[in-house]
């Protein structure tokens, strides 16, 4: 047997890592304020927004992929917007995959951070306030450091979940090398083309990688890492 992974496989691996990393960074930027709001608000919207964030946990990826495809099309709301901005349409592009992944992995980032913020409680923040810390100060120097374990859990889960994404990419990706052909799709291609040797190498790699990520997470002493469960 020659090299187990060919150039297309390596491109798929690189693309997947890029997608997962970018998605995780974006989700931390968007998800942290959202988690803060969810943890502290008394608004009536808390229920609906929380449910919306959690939806990808229960929805089949085909549902997300299908609606994204329709929304991103030239007649869809998202497609109309991006076309007006001169960006063209998003389907079959890396940007489209990033948007899809952000939706798809949202609960895996927001919920651990929200749990962490809720576990801190009000007291440390009130103490900081009496010492003269401004709200922004309290957020960055008190809340964020205390929520660090939750944020780390969120990053790892967001990254790992995006690595495992398949259905959404299949629906909106178009199987384009170096742009939308991620590892899971490449494995599917190999299996479809009956190239089981290549499929094994990639699939085994994903399996080992995912296992190690979760092992690492659990060794950090986080007993409960799954979203939806309260620590």
């Amino acid at each position: 047997m020659s090299l187990p992974l060919d150039a297309a496989d390596l491109a798929a691996i690189w693309l997947t890592l890029k997608l997962a990393a970018l998605t995780t960074v974006l989700l931390l930027l968007v998800g942290t304020p959202l988690a803060w709001w969810l943890a502290h608000t008394r608004s009536r919207l808390k229920g609906p927004i929380g449910a919306l964030v959690a939806l990808p946990l229960v929805l089949p990826p085909t549902v997300i992929g299908f609606y994204l495809l329709v929304a991103m099309g030239p007649n869809g709301p998202l497609g109309a917007l991006t076309r007006q901005l001169g960006l063209g349409t998003l389907a079959f592009s890396f940007s489209g995959l990033v948007i899809g992944s952000v939706c798809y992995s949202m609960p895996f980032v927001v919920q651990p951070i929200q749990n962490a913020f809720e576990a801190i409680g009000k007291r440390p923040l009130e103490v900081a306030a009496t010492l003269g810390a401004s709200p922004l100060d309290r957020f960055f120097t008190v809340a964020l450091p205390l929520a660090r374990p939750g944020i780390i859990t969120a990053s790892v889960l967001g990254f790992a979940h995006t690595l495992g994404e398949f259905g959404v990419v299949l629906m909106i990706g178009g199987n384009i090398p170096e742009r939308t052909r991620v590892v899971s799709v490449q494995i599917f291609n190999h299996v479809e083309a009956m190239d089981y040797a290549s499929a094994h190498w990639l699939a085994g790699g994903v399996l080992v990688c995912s296992f190690l990520i979760l092992l690492l997470l659990n060794r950090r002493g986080r007993p409960s890492v799954m979203p939806g469960t309260r620590a």
Partner: peptide, 9 residues
């Protein structure tokens, strides 16, 4: 067909 029918391609 679905890619073309939805206008994405």
């Amino acid at each position: 067909y679905q890619f073309v029918a939805s206008g994405n391609a």
